[in-house]
Design a protein around this nucleic acid. Sequence first.
DNA 1: TATTGTTATACTCTATAACTATA
DNA 2: TATAGTTATAGAGTATAACAATA
Lengths: 169, 169
Amino acid sequence: MAVEKDTEGAPLVMQGATESIGFMLSKVGNAVSSRFGEILSEYELVPRQFFVLNLICQHEGESQQAIAGSIGVAKSQMVSVVDELEAKGYLERRVNPDDRRQHALFVTKSGKAMQEKAINAAREHELAVRSVLSKAEAETLLGALHKIAELDGTPIGVHASIAAKLKDE
Amino acid sequence: MAVEKDTEGAPLVMQGATESIGFMLSKVGNAVSSRFGEILSEYELVPRQFFVLNLICQHEGESQQAIAGSIGVAKSQMVSVVDELEAKGYLERRVNPDDRRQHALFVTKSGKAMQEKAINAAREHELAVRSVLSKAEAETLLGALHKIAELDGTPIGVHASIAAKLKDE
DNA sequence: TATTGTTATACTCTATAACTATA
DNA sequence: TATAGTTATAGAGTATAACAATA
């Protein structure tokens, strides 16, 4: 992408930005994330709800805080997310008989159905992204992303807040 | 919070997520952006201030709204960003004699000095990111990012709102 | 005393509309 | 009437502390 001269009426560009991996990663990462949010909105889900629903499908019976920590939200925020998903009939709280303070989370039938629809939409989005890349490019990109993630200690499956907590406490 | 040893307490992972380019792009893009914010904080700048300062260095005399549009912030937000940078002595507003409604923005000497320090820090960050990649990987990554940006019509140098506006003028 | 879920509060970001002074 | 900058306000989103039930 060529850097244009500053002519009248031409958009102001930040020189060199498009050659920066850091800058482009920020921009594209944010754009992809926004696009994913748009896709999910068709199912009347926000990304956070999708992540929780998806995680509970894969780990049924976990407590609210176990789920909350895994996606990096505060336990207080988790309350409203679970409220919303419960109101939609996608999951239910059951008191854990072994520890009555905890609410074990379980998906309902319609919750599972919604998760499948949403995850299919996510897969389509993934295919759209990959459609502009060769197989080799996609592999290199994914590998590079993992290397950069490691560099900063970016937690992938687990959010930074909980990773830090698990480490020093 | 005493997390001593969790037997089955391994963090809950979202299966398949690490193989998704979309998911990894969101995560890594956000991480890189956060890291950049940390680096800038050493200079007591937030990213938005840096972008404005940098853009004004490259395009002196532009109006607040021209700059605002280029980084995708509302004109009302631009006021406080310029206030802050002016308070730090990095730039100054001068009334445009051709149109007294406009404030032309100019960097000061110390503003230019700070921009150079900050942009050097940005370059170091860029080098750190690139240090974990081969030259070929870096090229492929950058190319892939541009292709994905094009896919969604992600505005890179210029924000969508101003790009549209500037077209009809 | 510590922890789970909950509630309440505060603080940041952002989006929007209205106001002023100029055009 | 329209525009540049400003101000004020409301809405998300998030972070934090306090509380009740339970351990």
